[in-house]
Design a protein around this nucleic acid. Structure first.
Length: 276
DNA sequence: ACCCGTGTTCGCTG
DNA sequence: TCAGCGAACACGGG
């Protein structure tokens, strides 16, 4: 599920559901020990009970919740991993499958975090000092929130021998680009994803930066419709090359075929005819 | 049954 | 010292 557009969408939903609300009861799945850091699921539940949610923010794929507790501010850094999902339900509704965290709010609503594979994380950040948290400090700039600094991107790509598509997955380069949009951005920029980072000319870096932002905005536009209440699996593949092995390249007049290959243990989709 | 997966982290290697 | 690589994590879906 989660690429950066989905995480942005989750942040907006969480903002609507949680900000200004008090958490009256918390339940954590005791078997999901690896999800809650530091400490145990029970300790996490104790830390959140009675807190009021002051803000929900996002940087890259990291969600940042600021809570006010009796002992002062407390941060929660949430990451959806591969299969994490936040859902709001009426208190009377059955909880979703693989609910790992359940928050009962003072307005009667119930918000669940569900995550079958438990590759996500729910991390307590003391005093909500996100800027001092090492994992977050290591992230690069967020390409959905701010224009891409071309000088910085050029310098960082010039310093790596890795393939450009693999470099795009490095959250220290740009925070939030995942496997889908890395492929999509290379296709939009007509760049071969196997090109070494240090082989790109300045004009190619500029094309790539535009393509990254265009792909992310395109992804968000597909979600940002008021009638959507929950993100569901299935439906049409909204992407241009991702998951489209064997299809015609959608670039006008190209006539090539989308192919799949593997880079750094992840699928890459490309059209060899127009990406070079 | 078998293979695949929208992500991150850790340990090894050269 | 460090960039880069590959296994590991855990489970559902095709």
């Amino acid at each position: 599920m989660p690429e950066l557009p989905e995480v942005e969408w989750a942040a907006r939903q969480l903002g609507r559901w949680l900000v200004g609300r008090r958490v009256e009861a918390v339940a954590c799945d005791p078997r999901a020990r690896r999800l809650f850091r530091p400490g145990s699921p029970a300790a996490f539940a104790r830390a959140l009970r009675g807190a009021r949610v002051a803000a929900v923010a996002r940087h890259g794929k990291q969600l940042l919740l600021t809570l006010e507790t009796a002992r002062g501010p407390l941060g929660v850094n949430a990451h959806l991993g591969m299969t994490g999902k936040w859902v709001a339900r009426p208190a009377s509704a059955p909880e979703p499958g693989h609910a790992r965290l359940t928050l009962r709010l003072d307005d009667g609503a119930v918000v669940h975090y569900s995550d079958p594979r438990m590759f996500g994380r729910l991390r307590l950040v003391p005093r909500a000092r996100f800027d001092e948290w090492p994992d977050l400090a290591a992230l690069g700039p967020d390409p959905l929130a701010t224009p891409i600094d071309l000088t910085r991107l050029r310098a960082r790509l010039a310093a790596t021998r890795r393939a450009v598509k693999v470099a795009l997955l490095d959250q220290a380069l740009l925070a939030g680009v995942g496997n889908i949009h890395a492929s999509e951005a290379c296709w939009r920029a007509r760049l071969d994803p196997r090109r070494r980072g240090d082989s790109l000319a300045p004009a190619e870096v500029a094309r790539l930066a535009r393509a990254v932002r265009a792909s992310l905005r395109f992804g968000l536009a597909g979600l940002d419709r008021p009638e959507i209440e929950y993100l569901e699996e299935g439906g049409e593949n909204p992407f241009h090359v991702y998951g489209r092995e064997g299809a015609r390249c959608p670039h006008r007049g190209c006539g090539g075929t989308v192919e799949r290959l593997v880079q750094a243990q992840r699928s890459t989709y490309l059209c060899r005819r127009c990406q070079d």
